[in-house]
Simulated scan of single mutants.
Amino acid sequence: MTAGDQQQNGAPFRQPPTGPRVAPQPQPSFTAAPRSPVQQVTDGYPAAFRWRRMASVIFFVGIMLSGGIRAYRDLSRPDAWSFWKDQYVSPSLSSVLVADAALGATGGTRAVLAVSGRIGPAAAIWLRERINESNLRIGDVVLLSSPGGNLEQGVLMGEIIRAHGLATAVGVVDKDGRIRPGYCASACVFTFAGGQTRYGLDGSALGVHRFTSKAEGEDAVADTQRVTGAILGYVTRMGISSQVIEAMSETRDIRWLDPQEAEAMKLVTAPLKPL
């Protein structure tokens, strides 16, 4: 009996018309390797562009690593962290701006930037930024209240004050915005010396003392001579008598100058009476 006879008689096919039934072969399974971030970024772009994009990414990573290494080297210096902390984290100085302050019985009114605190390793940069933010004009006043601190920064602060044509005074601002007597000692005196006009508020005090060198032996002598020469040149340019250097050299403790001495040294140029 043929296959056709079986179909006609209702009998099922023992074999399909197209031949024996064959089970499908299993397909091999695999998982694609994950793409890198660079591949994800460059997918869908021409090959040349992808290479340029990849080169840019590599260049950026190199710059970041280079900057990190440079920052690490900078921070590894003994004084680097102190400088960064004083400039960005917790400045040693603080300020208050009084837009229209009365300087004294005969001083009139001016904008006053009251600066107080210890002079730290980044004090000069800090002061320059505060002066710029305050929009101080020639003749406005930087009011100082400080025990001193970094000698070099104190001198630089004085240079900045002179470059802006500002005056200086010693004192503090009370809660009502009025100027009250204060004190300025050690490195603060050189900041005060930068004033185009240097007001001497009655009751305020200026204190000087001998500076010390961290070097030893012959290096200490050479360092002291170098610093003394630099300080003498600075006070001379500011119109101050060399007598202030003599007063400094007399003691390692603070010597408070009386008003007559300060005027005789031309450290104070405009005495004022408090209100």
Results as ranks from 00 to 15, higher is better:
S242Y: 01
G104E: 02
L206Q: 02
R178P: 00
T42G: 03
D86A: 10
F30H: 13
G203P: 11
T236F: 01
P147E: 09
I131D: 01
A11S: 02
G233C: 04
P37L: 13
Q260W: 05
Q153C: 12
H164E: 11
A32E: 10
D202L: 13
I138S: 06
S76L: 10
S90M: 00
T18W: 13
A123S: 12
F49M: 12
A99K: 14
K175F: 10
L127K: 07
T212I: 10
R130G: 00
G229K: 09
A187E: 07
L127N: 03
W256C: 01
L136R: 04
S36I: 05
V268D: 03
G182K: 02
T191N: 05
P26V: 12
T224E: 05
A33T: 11
A264V: 15
T42H: 11
Q40E: 07
P28G: 10
T31N: 11
S116T: 14
A33P: 08
P78A: 06
S92D: 12
P17Y: 09
G120F: 00
N150L: 08
G194R: 12
P20Q: 13
A102G: 12
A230R: 02
I63E: 07
I58W: 13
P16N: 08
S36M: 11
A3Y: 07
S66V: 05
T2K: 13
E152H: 12
L151I: 04
A247R: 04
F192Q: 05
A187Y: 07
R252Q: 13
T31M: 10
M238K: 01
S76F: 04
Y45T: 10
L97N: 01
E133S: 13
L136M: 07
P24W: 03
Y45N: 08
R35N: 05
G148T: 04
E129T: 03
L93Q: 06
G207W: 03
R198G: 04
G207S: 14
T269N: 09
V142F: 07
A124I: 04
Q6W: 09
D258R: 12
G4C: 07
V57R: 12
G200D: 05
P91H: 15
